[in-house]
Design a protein around this nucleic acid. Sequence first.
DNA 1: CCGGATGTTCACCT
DNA 2: GAGGTGAACATCCG
Length: 260
Amino acid sequence: MPELLEVEYYRRAAERAVGRRIAGVELPDAWFARALPSLDGLGALLVGDRVAATDRHGKLLLLECGRGPVLGLRFGMTGRLVVDGHAAIEKLEYASGRDDPAWERFALTFDDGGRLVVTDPRRLGSVSLDPDRSDLGPDAATVTVTELRRALAGTTTSLKARLLDQSRLAGLGNLLVDEILWRAGLGPLRPAGGLDTAEVRRLHRHLQATITELDGRGGSHTGDLFPARRPGGRCPRCDGSLRRDRAGGRTTVWCEHDQR
DNA sequence: CCGGATGTTCACCT
DNA sequence: GAGGTGAACATCCG
Protein backbone atom coordinates (compact mmCIF):
# COMPACT_ATOMS: atom_id res chain seq x y z
CA MET A 1 0.00 0.00 0.00
CA PRO A 2 2.65 2.48 0.67
CA GLU A 3 3.58 5.62 -1.10
CA LEU A 4 5.35 8.43 0.70
CA LEU A 5 2.31 9.20 2.88
CA GLU A 6 1.90 5.65 4.14
CA VAL A 7 5.61 5.27 4.79
CA GLU A 8 5.46 8.49 6.77
CA TYR A 9 2.67 6.97 8.89
CA TYR A 10 4.91 3.94 9.37
CA ARG A 11 7.77 6.21 10.40
CA ARG A 12 5.61 7.89 13.01
CA ALA A 13 4.61 4.48 14.33
CA ALA A 14 8.26 3.44 14.40
CA GLU A 15 8.96 6.38 16.69
CA ARG A 16 7.58 4.15 19.45
CA ALA A 17 10.71 2.04 19.04
CA VAL A 18 13.14 4.88 19.62
CA GLY A 19 15.21 4.39 22.76
CA ARG A 20 14.32 0.72 23.13
CA ARG A 21 16.89 -2.05 23.24
CA ILE A 22 16.87 -4.70 20.52
CA ALA A 23 16.72 -8.22 21.94
CA GLY A 24 16.36 -10.16 18.73
CA VAL A 25 16.06 -10.05 14.95
CA GLU A 26 13.64 -12.28 13.04
CA LEU A 27 14.10 -12.74 9.32
CA PRO A 28 12.20 -15.89 8.45
CA ASP A 29 12.04 -15.16 4.73
CA ALA A 30 15.39 -15.19 2.98
CA TRP A 31 13.84 -13.59 -0.09
CA PHE A 32 12.91 -10.55 1.99
CA ALA A 33 16.59 -10.20 2.89
CA ARG A 34 17.76 -10.13 -0.73
CA ALA A 35 19.08 -6.57 -0.35
CA LEU A 36 21.34 -7.64 2.51
CA PRO A 37 24.88 -8.71 1.63
CA SER A 38 24.49 -11.62 4.03
CA LEU A 39 22.34 -12.75 6.89
CA ASP A 40 25.37 -13.51 9.00
CA GLY A 41 26.16 -10.91 11.54
CA LEU A 42 22.91 -9.01 11.31
CA GLY A 43 21.82 -10.23 14.72
CA ALA A 44 25.21 -9.64 16.25
CA LEU A 45 25.23 -6.16 14.80
CA LEU A 46 21.82 -5.19 16.13
CA VAL A 47 21.12 -7.18 19.28
CA GLY A 48 21.90 -5.12 22.34
CA ASP A 49 21.81 -1.89 20.38
CA ARG A 50 19.07 0.69 20.73
CA VAL A 51 16.94 2.30 18.05
CA ALA A 52 18.24 5.85 18.08
CA ALA A 53 16.13 7.64 15.49
CA THR A 54 13.79 7.20 12.55
CA ASP A 55 13.98 8.84 9.16
CA ARG A 56 12.29 8.57 5.78
CA HIS A 57 13.50 9.27 2.26
CA GLY A 58 10.80 8.82 -0.31
CA LYS A 59 9.32 5.37 0.28
CA LEU A 60 12.36 4.19 2.25
CA LEU A 61 11.99 3.99 6.04
CA LEU A 62 15.20 4.23 8.03
CA LEU A 63 15.84 3.03 11.56
CA GLU A 64 19.09 4.44 12.87
CA CYS A 65 20.71 2.43 15.60
CA GLY A 66 22.94 3.74 18.35
CA ARG A 67 26.11 1.99 17.30
CA GLY A 68 25.80 3.25 13.77
CA PRO A 69 24.03 0.69 11.57
CA VAL A 70 21.02 2.00 9.69
CA LEU A 71 18.21 -0.40 8.83
CA GLY A 72 16.37 0.34 5.61
CA LEU A 73 12.82 -0.94 5.20
CA ARG A 74 10.97 -1.03 1.88
CA PHE A 75 7.32 -2.00 1.79
CA GLY A 76 6.60 -2.74 -1.84
CA MET A 77 2.89 -2.65 -2.58
CA THR A 78 1.49 -4.56 0.37
CA GLY A 79 3.99 -4.14 3.20
CA ARG A 80 2.78 -2.91 6.56
CA LEU A 81 4.43 -1.95 9.80
CA VAL A 82 3.05 -3.20 13.10
CA VAL A 83 4.60 -1.96 16.33
CA ASP A 84 3.60 -3.61 19.60
CA GLY A 85 0.57 -5.08 17.91
CA HIS A 86 -0.69 -1.75 16.61
CA ALA A 87 -0.84 -1.41 12.84
CA ALA A 88 0.26 2.01 11.65
CA ILE A 89 -2.67 1.93 9.25
CA GLU A 90 -5.71 -0.07 10.21
CA LYS A 91 -7.58 -0.01 6.96
CA LEU A 92 -5.98 -2.16 4.34
CA GLU A 93 -6.67 -4.19 1.30
CA TYR A 94 -5.91 -7.68 2.53
CA ALA A 95 -8.29 -7.64 5.46
CA SER A 96 -9.02 -11.36 5.54
CA GLY A 97 -5.55 -12.47 6.53
CA ARG A 98 -4.30 -9.33 8.19
CA ASP A 99 -2.97 -11.16 11.23
CA ASP A 100 -1.62 -14.15 9.39
CA PRO A 101 1.77 -14.88 10.96
CA ALA A 102 2.85 -16.34 7.65
CA TRP A 103 3.02 -12.80 6.29
CA GLU A 104 5.57 -11.66 8.84
CA ARG A 105 8.79 -11.00 6.91
CA PHE A 106 10.95 -9.12 9.39
CA ALA A 107 10.83 -8.28 13.06
CA LEU A 108 12.82 -6.61 15.76
CA THR A 109 12.00 -7.77 19.26
CA PHE A 110 12.76 -5.51 22.18
CA ASP A 111 13.88 -6.43 25.67
CA ASP A 112 10.61 -5.03 27.03
CA GLY A 113 8.72 -7.72 25.10
CA GLY A 114 7.43 -5.46 22.33
CA ARG A 115 7.94 -6.05 18.63
CA LEU A 116 8.33 -4.05 15.44
CA VAL A 117 7.07 -6.22 12.59
CA VAL A 118 6.95 -5.87 8.82
CA THR A 119 4.16 -7.94 7.26
CA ASP A 120 3.99 -8.27 3.51
CA PRO A 121 1.79 -10.85 1.74
CA ARG A 122 3.28 -10.24 -1.69
CA ARG A 123 6.90 -10.05 -0.49
CA LEU A 124 7.69 -7.09 -2.71
CA GLY A 125 9.32 -5.23 0.17
CA SER A 126 12.80 -5.78 1.54
CA VAL A 127 15.22 -5.10 4.37
CA SER A 128 18.62 -3.56 3.81
CA LEU A 129 21.53 -2.38 5.90
CA ASP A 130 23.05 1.08 5.49
CA PRO A 131 21.03 1.60 2.30
CA ASP A 132 22.54 3.71 -0.44
CA ARG A 133 20.42 6.82 -0.72
CA SER A 134 22.43 8.38 -3.54
CA ASP A 135 20.07 6.85 -6.09
CA LEU A 136 17.07 8.70 -4.67
CA GLY A 137 16.00 12.15 -5.77
CA PRO A 138 14.85 14.85 -3.37
CA ASP A 139 11.95 13.82 -1.14
CA ALA A 140 8.63 14.85 -2.66
CA ALA A 141 7.26 16.11 0.65
CA THR A 142 9.94 18.78 0.93
CA VAL A 143 11.08 19.31 -2.66
CA THR A 144 11.63 22.94 -3.66
CA VAL A 145 10.31 24.39 -6.88
CA THR A 146 13.88 24.70 -8.13
CA GLU A 147 14.55 21.03 -7.42
CA LEU A 148 11.30 20.07 -9.11
CA ARG A 149 12.20 22.06 -12.20
CA ARG A 150 15.55 20.28 -12.29
CA ALA A 151 13.86 16.89 -11.88
CA LEU A 152 11.67 17.50 -14.94
CA ALA A 153 14.12 19.31 -17.20
CA GLY A 154 15.76 18.01 -20.32
CA THR A 155 13.70 14.96 -21.15
CA THR A 156 10.95 14.04 -23.52
CA THR A 157 9.69 11.21 -21.37
CA SER A 158 6.19 11.65 -20.04
CA LEU A 159 5.45 13.81 -17.04
CA LYS A 160 3.86 10.82 -15.34
CA ALA A 161 6.87 8.57 -15.86
CA ARG A 162 9.26 11.25 -14.65
CA LEU A 163 7.30 11.92 -11.47
CA LEU A 164 7.31 8.19 -10.73
CA ASP A 165 11.07 7.97 -11.26
CA GLN A 166 12.40 7.67 -7.70
CA SER A 167 15.89 8.67 -8.78
CA ARG A 168 14.54 12.05 -9.88
CA LEU A 169 11.94 12.64 -7.18
CA ALA A 170 11.47 10.24 -4.29
CA GLY A 171 8.18 9.26 -2.73
CA LEU A 172 5.37 9.60 -5.24
CA GLY A 173 3.52 6.50 -6.41
CA ASN A 174 0.82 5.82 -8.93
CA LEU A 175 -2.14 7.17 -6.98
CA LEU A 176 -0.48 10.36 -5.77
CA VAL A 177 0.87 11.26 -9.19
CA ASP A 178 -2.52 10.89 -10.87
CA GLU A 179 -4.18 12.94 -8.11
CA ILE A 180 -1.56 15.69 -8.26
CA LEU A 181 -1.60 15.96 -12.06
CA TRP A 182 -5.39 16.03 -12.05
CA ARG A 183 -5.44 18.82 -9.47
CA ALA A 184 -2.75 20.73 -11.34
CA GLY A 185 -4.61 20.34 -14.63
CA LEU A 186 -1.59 18.87 -16.41
CA GLY A 187 -1.73 16.03 -18.92
CA PRO A 188 0.28 12.99 -17.75
CA LEU A 189 1.49 12.16 -21.26
CA ARG A 190 3.08 15.54 -21.90
CA PRO A 191 6.87 15.59 -22.19
CA ALA A 192 8.23 16.31 -18.73
CA GLY A 193 10.76 18.77 -20.07
CA GLY A 194 8.09 20.75 -21.90
CA LEU A 195 6.53 22.50 -18.94
CA ASP A 196 6.98 26.25 -18.76
CA THR A 197 7.94 28.06 -15.57
CA ALA A 198 4.38 28.85 -14.57
CA GLU A 199 3.34 25.22 -15.05
CA VAL A 200 6.20 23.94 -12.92
CA ARG A 201 5.20 26.38 -10.19
CA ARG A 202 1.60 25.24 -10.47
CA LEU A 203 2.63 21.60 -10.27
CA HIS A 204 4.77 22.33 -7.22
CA ARG A 205 1.93 24.13 -5.48
CA HIS A 206 -0.51 21.26 -6.06
CA LEU A 207 2.13 18.71 -5.13
CA GLN A 208 2.61 20.33 -1.75
CA ALA A 209 -1.09 20.93 -1.13
CA THR A 210 -2.05 17.38 -2.10
CA ILE A 211 0.53 15.78 0.17
CA THR A 212 -0.51 17.96 3.11
CA GLU A 213 -4.20 17.41 2.54
CA LEU A 214 -4.08 13.66 1.98
CA ASP A 215 -1.76 13.25 4.96
CA GLY A 216 -4.57 14.72 7.04
CA ARG A 217 -7.20 12.61 5.36
CA GLY A 218 -5.44 9.32 5.86
CA GLY A 219 -3.38 8.37 2.84
CA SER A 220 -2.84 8.05 -0.89
CA HIS A 221 -6.24 6.48 -1.46
CA THR A 222 -8.15 9.47 -0.04
CA GLY A 223 -7.70 11.71 -3.07
CA ASP A 224 -10.64 13.28 -4.88
CA LEU A 225 -9.86 11.33 -8.04
CA PHE A 226 -9.54 7.99 -6.28
CA PRO A 227 -13.24 7.02 -6.30
CA ALA A 228 -13.27 7.50 -10.08
CA ARG A 229 -10.28 5.18 -10.68
CA ARG A 230 -12.29 2.44 -12.33
CA PRO A 231 -13.48 1.75 -15.85
CA GLY A 232 -16.33 4.12 -16.59
CA GLY A 233 -15.31 6.55 -13.86
CA ARG A 234 -16.11 10.21 -14.46
CA CYS A 235 -14.16 13.36 -13.69
CA PRO A 236 -15.21 14.74 -10.29
CA ARG A 237 -14.73 18.25 -11.64
CA CYS A 238 -16.34 18.29 -15.08
CA ASP A 239 -18.16 14.95 -15.06
CA GLY A 240 -16.53 14.06 -18.36
CA SER A 241 -15.46 10.49 -18.99
CA LEU A 242 -11.95 9.78 -17.74
CA ARG A 243 -9.22 8.31 -19.88
CA ARG A 244 -7.23 5.24 -18.91
CA ASP A 245 -3.76 5.00 -20.41
CA ARG A 246 -0.50 3.30 -19.62
CA ALA A 247 2.22 5.74 -18.66
CA GLY A 248 5.41 4.99 -16.84
CA GLY A 249 4.28 1.38 -16.96
CA ARG A 250 1.28 2.07 -14.75
CA THR A 251 -2.42 2.53 -15.28
CA THR A 252 -3.00 6.26 -15.56
CA VAL A 253 -6.40 7.84 -15.04
CA TRP A 254 -6.88 11.39 -16.24
CA CYS A 255 -9.32 13.91 -17.67
CA GLU A 256 -8.60 14.98 -21.20
CA HIS A 257 -10.88 17.98 -20.79
CA ASP A 258 -9.34 19.39 -17.60
CA GLN A 259 -5.73 18.27 -17.94
CA ARG A 260 -3.62 19.87 -20.65
C1' DC B 1 -11.23 -18.12 -14.59
C1' DC B 2 -9.03 -13.73 -15.56
C1' DG B 3 -7.09 -9.32 -14.98
C1' DG B 4 -5.54 -5.86 -11.97
C1' DA B 5 -3.34 -3.94 -7.79
C1' DT B 6 -0.32 2.19 -3.55
C1' DG B 7 6.52 -1.14 -6.22
C1' DT B 8 11.10 -2.33 -7.85
C1' DT B 9 14.36 -4.57 -10.75
C1' DC B 10 16.02 -6.65 -14.74
C1' DA B 11 16.30 -8.38 -19.46
C1' DC B 12 15.39 -7.07 -23.94
C1' DC B 13 13.93 -3.97 -27.66
C1' DT B 14 13.87 0.40 -30.46
C1' DG C 1 22.49 6.59 -23.59
C1' DA C 2 17.44 7.19 -23.27
C1' DG C 3 13.10 5.37 -23.01
C1' DG C 4 9.58 1.80 -23.51
C1' DT C 5 7.76 -2.93 -22.65
C1' DG C 6 7.06 -7.11 -20.30
C1' DA C 7 8.17 -10.33 -16.79
C1' DA C 8 9.00 -11.61 -12.17
C1' DC C 9 8.01 -11.58 -7.24
C1' DA C 10 2.86 -13.67 -4.43
C1' DT C 11 -1.68 -12.89 -2.90
C1' DC C 12 -6.09 -11.17 -2.74
C1' DC C 13 -10.12 -8.97 -4.91
C1' DG C 14 -13.88 -7.91 -8.14
